[in-house]
């Protein structure tokens, strides 16, 4: 356990060391290649004066609302496509085509439609979350073996337990994977969005840092957004493992 942790953290430490040495060598100007020690100091200062906390709070608020909206619509849409042949025929082609478009490509249009207020950011996150969740739900429900439906028919399982004890558990693992992808995808798109158009949030903090040539602030933002994304991914993975207990020996 400790050994695996050490093995996981070693490359990161090596990278930080190489970075520190490169900064100290003076090949690049100190304002461009800020040493990690300075970034850490900036990070601590931003955290202490509450600035980082404010930005982070705003970003996470947008993420949560966007995620909940996008995930709810994605779950319903994916399930409807898997269960209704008509719905699939009507919407699958459009869905498959539109999901190939990078979410960032929708931003100019969404800015025109919604402005650059909170609503816009939440909608962008929701769109980013919607596609992986809808796709995973569709595949998850479609992939339930016919054999299990037959068992339910044989025992004439009533509708409610059929959904809660057979359909949902069968579909939950792939759907959770979709939710995890959606959550991290939503976070990426949100930070990108805030870089482009925002008055607060982690991305905006980085953009302000860039404009004032404070690369240490930019890098602090990079570090925080990476850490948040990693944390989100890990926590949903833990939930996934909890739901897949029955798979393990």
């Amino acid at each position: 356990m400790i050994r695996r942790f050490a093995q996981g953290i070693a490359p990161l430490l090596a990278l930080l060391l190489a970075w520190q040495l490169a900064s100290a060598s003076g090949v690049f100007p100190a304002q461009v290649l800020v040493p990690p020690s300075e970034v850490a100091a900036t990070l601590a200062r931003l955290w202490q004066d509450g600035e980082l906390g404010d930005h982070l709070g705003t970003s996470l608020f947008r993420l949560v609302f966007g995620f909940l909206t996008g995930a709810a619509i994605g779950l319903a849409f994916g399930a409807a496509m898997a269960l209704s042949k008509l719905f699939e025929t009507l919407f699958a082609p459009v869905f498959q085509a539109v999901r190939q478009v990078p979410v960032l490509a929708f931003i100019p249009m969404l800015v025109l439609l919604l402005g650059i207020e909170e609503r816009f950011k939440i909608v962008v996150v929701a769109v980013a979350v919607f596609f992986p969740v809808a796709l995973a739900t569709f595949d998850g429900v479609k992939g339930i073996p016919k054999a299990w439906f037959e068992v339910a028919r044989l025992y004439r399982t009533p509708p409610l337990p059929f959904i809660t004890r057979i359909l949902l558990p069968a579909a939950v693992p792939p759907v959770l994977t979709g939710l995890r992808l959606g959550l991290t995808r939503g976070w990426l798109v949100l930070v990108a969005c805030e870089l482009l158009a925002a008055d607060s949030g982690i991305g905006q903090m980085m953009e302000m840092g860039r404009q004032m040539f404070r690369i240490d602030v930019v890098l602090a933002g990079v570090f925080v957004s990476g850490l948040v994304g990693f944390g989100l991914d890990r926590s949903v993975k833990l939930v996934e493992r909890r739901f897949a207990r029955w798979k393990e020996a």
């Binding site: 299990w148 068992v151 025992y155 004439r156 399982t157 009533p158 004890r165 558990p169 069968a170 029955w246």
Partner: peptide
């Protein structure tokens, strides 16, 4: 059936009990 078709996320007891729901 030839394959047991027990639900992998239910315990043996729950699998057997499932038949009694209706």
């Amino acid at each position: 059936f030839q394959d047991h078709r027990l639900f992998p996320w239910l315990t043996l007891e729950e699998n057997v009990g499932l038949a009694l729901l209706n």
